[in-house]
């Protein structure tokens, strides 16, 4: 079986649709993960009783277990149990977001901890209101330094999206699978799917490394 350029080109439109879905999943999932992770980190930082411990256990549990099973559990068990029926796509966005929020929350935590104690003390000495300390002093210093780590996790998430084909999301790999099922030719679509991931994630990781050099890491 040899590489067939004509077939490869023919399968591109179908793959392109899948690529778009993969990118949508990544962007939406990442935004959700950035936000939810910040919520987790703040709850832990402020030390809300009970809730804080619960978040800790939740974060460690989610991080230590496979995303695929979490997706199954949410899709087949949790959604029927609470009486909702989300699309596979939306399920994917939510679970990517929740799973990666457990990573981003650690990134924020490290970023906040990297701020020297003297900054908090100086702010207190100047009687700056608590909310202003966060928005005016801590976050402006912490956010640039966490960007490379967030970038790395976003790239990881991007490469993990294909497992959502298990619940029927038609991403780039699933498109390749469909193309292969129709024609019994699998080399071209699967290879193109791999090339697509490489073409996005390699430049992205170079960008992250550049960013790392500029702002340092946490």
């Amino acid at each position: 079986m040899d590489w067939d350029w004509e077939y490869a080109i023919d399968s591109l439109p179908l793959l392109a649709e899948g690529m778009l879905v993969t990118i949508e999943l990544t962007v939406l999932g990442a935004l959700f993960a950035y936000l939810l992770g910040l919520v987790f980190a703040m709850i832990r930082r402020v030390g809300v009783p009970v809730l804080s411990q619960f978040v800790y256990l939740f974060v460690e549990f989610i991080r230590s277990t496979p995303l695929l099973i979490q997706v199954f559990a949410f899709y087949y068990l949790l959604q029927p149990a609470i009486g909702v029926k989300l699309s596979p796509f939306l399920t994917g966005v939510i679970m990517l977001g929740v799973h990666y929020a457990t990573y981003t929350s650690e990134v924020y935590r490290a970023g906040i901890e990297a701020i020297p104690k003297g900054q908090w003390e100086a702010a207190r000495a100047l009687s700056i209101p608590r909310s202003r300390v966060w928005t005016g002093i801590i976050l402006p210093q912490a956010v640039p330094r966490v960007l490379p780590a967030l970038g790395n996790y976003t790239i990881s998430m991007f490469k993990e999206t294909p497992l959502l084909l298990a619940i029927g999301v038609v991403d780039v790999l699933n498109s390749a699978k469909e193309a292969g099922a129709e024609t019994f030719r699998v080399i071209e679509p699967y290879t193109l799917a791999g090339v697509f991931f490489l073409l996005v994630s390699y430049p992205a990781s170079i960008l992250v490394r550049k960013l790392e050099r500029r702002v340092g890491t946490v």
Binding site: M1, F158, K159, E160, T161, P162, L163, L173, A176, K177, G180, R185, V186, I187, Y190, T191, A193, G194, V195, F197, L198, S201, Y202, S205
Partner: peptide, 23 residues
């Protein structure tokens, strides 16, 4: 290193399991 980090693990699995036999 860049090849295997840059492509998705899922794609690698599918490639090895479904494409390689065809090749």
């Amino acid at each position: 290193v860049e090849g295997f980090r840059g492509t998705s693990e899922m794609v690698q699995l599918f490639w090895l399991y479904f494409v390689l036999p065809a090749l």
